[in-house]
Write a protein that binds this DNA or RNA. Structure first.
Lengths: 228, 228
DNA sequence: AAACGCCGTTAACATTTGTTAACATTTATT
DNA sequence: AATAAATGTTAACAAATGTTAACGGCGTTT
């Protein structure tokens, strides 16, 4: 997979806290660059960029708000999380207004900082499985490209076919209720739309018929289930 | 501008709090749908969707975590903010792990809730994105000069081609509705103008065909999406 | 003024795709 | 077994879109 480490710029003037955070975040796999005031942070950003920035608010030379304003003005779009001892609501509001993306009050648990940073990086859905590709028996389904590939080659699906199959894949081996499926894809669950869905299921079955271990099962009166 | 109101689904079993929140959020311009337990929330989502969801964790019938898991499994990608009285770090971590995007401890200031919701909706920074150049796969698009450059050299676009491509670039990987596109560039969305747009899309596709990772996808009956 | 090239539009034809109809089959119920 | 409801399957159809070429306005060049 060759995952690159995430570059995190930490701006914190309390030396003790800065050290603890640096160590812990490094432990957790981040590539941490630590600086101790706003001006240095700005310089560090200009030199080497970062994927995410964690910064204190009250600091010498340049406070956190000014730092973020400056960064945003320079075109920095990296997510920024504020850390602060000040807990007044206006501080939080101000933090978001100058361009911050999250705000964490001291004292805080480091685990919470980490999950919030990961959330900002868009890596939350560790539980929401990878949706780039689904393995359906001997097939591979690529929703983004509306494609199914197998030993015999590629088949491209129509938009609707792909949508229906995606919903079934998300609930692999579970029953997907026709009602919720129709509501989501067609907007309402009228009789004619149901008949339309029947046709799409039929077409999907044909696409998947090469592999007998794969089956779209109908649960009469309820919905469909992709079994494999 | 004719801004549509943001649909916010509020899930909170404490009636008093629910009412206060509903009133305040409505005041602030949100279109609020309030329900009092997880199951009702799931139904409400299936019926009418929402742009953002704010939910308590501890609730009758179905707790907030289960609710969010269920929603994510059904393909819900709306941002979700948890409200809770429980303050343990593991609760926060769990909240993010099941697919939540933010977590706010009770008691909280309503203003903080609002800025956090707005942040989730991506309406904070007035970062005006750089429109001098767009990166489209291996291409670079310069709207001001109506030029596309790639390894193989420069291609200059006609005015219309550039306008259409710019609209697609501004909403990269999002669907641009033909109606709004026609209204903006042609003035009205008559049938013949639509056919004209079809031709320009076709021409743009040809310009971008060198890079297979770039694609202008049609969303039947809705619009186009620049995927890369 | 004539010739030319650029460009948006329109036309004509091809293809894709969601829907509907028609008929077959299965399942549950009486 | 008889019946009705639900679902399976296939084909036909109509709408939307893709694609290419031709047309005609318009400004520029010769």
């Amino acid at each position: 997979m060759n995952e690159k480490k995430t570059n995190l710029l930490l701006v914190e003037d309390e030396l003790m806290l800065a050290e603890i955070l640096t160590d812990t975040l490094t432990d957790k796999g981040f590539n941490v660059r630590t600086v101790y005031d706003g001006l240095s942070a700005l310089e560090a950003w200009r030199k080497e960029r970062a994927d995410v920035i964690v910064t204190d608010v009250m600091m010498p030379k340049m406070d956190g708000y000014s730092l973020v304003k400056a960064l945003r003005r320079e075109g920095c779009t990296a997510p920024i999380l504020f850390l602060t001892a000040r807990s007044a609501t206006e501080d939080v509001v101000n933090g978001f207004e100058v361009g911050g993306n999250d705000f964490l009050r001291k004292p805080f648990a480091i685990d919470e900082l980490i999950v919030r940073v990961n959330s900002l990086l868009g890596r939350t859905q560790s539980i929401v499985p990878n949706e780039n590709v689904f393995n359906i028996g001997r097939f591979e389904f690529y929703p983004a490209e509306s494609k199914i590939s197998s030993a015999k080659g590629n088949v491209s699906l129509s938009a609707r076919e792909a949508q229906v199959l995606l919903r079934l894949c998300r609930n692999m081996n579970q029953t997907v209720e026709t009602e919720s499926l129709l509501r989501e894809l067609w907007g309402d669950d009228s009789f004619y739309n149901l008949r339309s869905l029947n046709v799409f299921v039929s077409r999907l079955r044909r696409h998947l018929e090469e592999d007998e271990s794969v089956e779209i099962v109908n649960i009469r009166g309820v919905g469909y289930k992709l079994r494999c």
